[in-house]
């Protein structure tokens, strides 16, 4: 499927998610177009990560619809959704701790590798070929995210910022159309954040749409083409960084009500 730049890849309508009595996501509407960078922001507990988990299939939404590439993915398993072309990272690093860096990234090719288990048992030519291709791919993406260390090391030996990069490489390995990053800048220092911004731009240049949950406003305002603001599980604003900056509702959500400022508008 090829699309024009403004084609909608992901469309969420009236999404509701409840945990017992708590409504985590309350009628969320949002869409992601081809090749754009969208940020989802909002105060703590606004339901950003919950919405993320619904979209990527980890939580079952109570109602609403989620369409990805024209198909409903509301009841799909996370692995199926990944296969369809939506990759994600996690808020707290979720690398495979007892696997090497290379193997971590190689897992991303799992679903598209042409290798049966008896290929591995017998070391058939198909095994050699698929492993080689997979490894080349993995090295390509590790290189792409700017990882230059020893790939046979275990991930836990890496500093935090490097682990973040490996996690992004692993997500890219699944050949996504949409990449969802859950607070990728959390815990990074200033220069690492600059590196991340540059990396996100390069991913976008590949034609991959990016959905970003982030607390770092500087970063969000810097790279987002569109920003969606959530509060109490509801979407309260959707617009360009400039529009969001001046939206009274957003200011209110972040700073609390302030009569004077509303008057000034």
């Amino acid at each position: 499927m090829s699309e024009t730049p403004r084609d909608t890849l992901l469309e969420v309508r009236d999404l509701v998610l409840r945990f017992g009595g708590v409504v985590a996501v309350d009628g969320l509407n949002m869409s992601v177009h081809a090749g754009e960078i969208v940020s989802v922001i909002g105060p703590n507990g606004a339901g950003k990560t919950s919405a993320f988990n619904c979209i990527s299939g980890f939580y079952r939404a109570n109602s609403g619809s989620i369409r990805f590439l024209g198909q409903s993915i509301l009841r799909r398993q996370p692995s199926t959704i990944t296969k369809m072309g939506m990759a994600r990272t996690f808020q707290n690093l979720r690398l495979f701790k007892e696997m090497s860096i290379l193997d971590n990234v190689k897992t991303g090719a799992h679903y598209r590798m042409k290798q049966h288990w008896f290929d591995a048992l017998l070391h058939t030519p198909a095994y050699g070929k698929s492993e080689r291709e997979c490894e080349d791919d993995a090295r390509y993406w590790l290189d792409f995210v700017g990882f230059k260390g020893d790939t046979s090391m275990y991930v836990t030996a890496l500093p935090y910022g490097e682990q973040r990069r490996v996690e992004i490489a692993r997500a890219l390995m699944t050949k996504p159309r949409v990449l969802m990053l859950d607070e990728p800048a959390a815990g990074l220092n200033h220069s690492e954040k600059q590196g991340l911004i540059e990396l996100i731009r390069r991913i976008q240049a590949l034609g991959i749409s990016i959905v970003l949950i982030e607390h770092d406003m500087g970063l969000v305002m810097d790279i987002s083409e569109r920003i969606i603001v959530l509060n109490y599980g509801k979407e309260i604003a959707d617009g360009t960084p400039d529009e969001i900056r001046n939206d009274p509702l957003v200011v209110e959500a972040y700073l609390g009500t302030d009569e004077d400022e509303e008057d000034a508008e």
């Binding site: 990527s56 980890f58 199926t80 990944t82 979720r94 679903y111």
Partner: peptide, 12 residues
């Protein structure tokens, strides 16, 4: 190592 992350990698 991590069931959720494995799902997110497209592993059933």
């Amino acid at each position: 190592d991590d069931e959720d992350a494995a799902e997110a990698m497209g592993i059933n």
